[in-house]
Design a protein around this nucleic acid. Structure first.
Lengths: 148, 148
DNA sequence: CCCAATTAGTTGTATGTGCAACCATTTCAA
DNA sequence: TTGAAATGGTTGCACATACAACTAATTGGG
């Protein structure tokens, strides 16, 4: 029974997805460093989601990045210290703090884009268009399995 | 140009792979907690690779888990404190410390297997056999892109 | 044979993370 | 309307992580 379960686990997508995700994360972090962009991938992700939608409440950012709200507090502390973002209390709900990119943060994100693009291309080198769309559609299914 | 790069990045597998990997990691960590297995995913991964090959040098473990050797030092410190692993110096090379599962560590890993299996099944629910093998083969290509 | 370069592991420091306990504010139901 | 429950954010604590500087041991080229 245990052996059977072991076998089942070994042939699942789980370890492949975990390992590939981790490798990609480390790869990206190294790229940022190589290009002199002095920033963690965690911070880069924050810049990205704020670039997509500025002025989000912290709690929402925790939700979309799969982090705890307490983690966001510290991550944003560091980024605010480095003048990448600012926190502005929402006048309509005094509990909420909305997070905005600073000019500096926006510039920093712009300079990351070519690095991201180059790395993204390197990562999917040799994959056909079909493979890419197939991969993404499967990952969408996996995500919906996790969320419900 | 920036807009073009942005577009290219948005349609790449990178954010999908990163997000899905993170979601899966959090999902798995929650499962361990729900089943009363008082252990981080990082520690669970260490148990897994030692179960596959016991007595590895720390440095090798850092390599296969994409972590820095300094990270392994602290991770194993915690696990040794909790009697999950032991470090035994290699008599043939006094620099090397080989890491072994304890009886307790092995038992702990065995009890994780059904949880892993159940979670793995939940994650790939609704995927066809073809989709699973396709996904894994694509991830192998991505991994080889990163490693070379 | 010997010393410079390499390799394995640890430590200091800063950041990232989860969890529980907490505070302030808002919502909602009796 | 008001007090309990829910919500957004912070803090204390323990662990996870990267990076650089370090020690100890091994290797290799002269």
């Amino acid at each position: 029974m245990a052996k059977n379960n072991q076998h089942e686990f070994e042939n699942s997508i789980m370890p492949w997805l975990g390992k590939t995700g981790k490798m990609m994360f480390v790869f990206m972090a190294d790229k940022l460093k190589q290009h002199g962009l002095n920033m963690s991938m965690e911070q880069a992700i924050i810049l990205k989601i704020l670039h997509e939608e500025d002025g989000q409440p912290q709690n929402n950012m925790a939700l979309v990045t799969n982090r705890h709200k307490a983690t966001l507090t510290r991550l944003l502390d560091t980024m605010e210290k480095n003048h990448l973002v600012t926190r502005i209390p929402d006048p309509a709900d005094k509990r909420v703090k909305r997070v905005y990119l600073t000019r500096h943060g926006r510039q920093h994100f712009e300079s990351m884009i070519p690095v991201f693009s180059e790395a993204a291309a390197a990562i999917q080198k040799g994959l056909t268009e079909t493979e890419i769309t197939t991969l993404i559609s499967i990952l969408k299914k996996v995500q919906s399995n996790i969320n419900f």
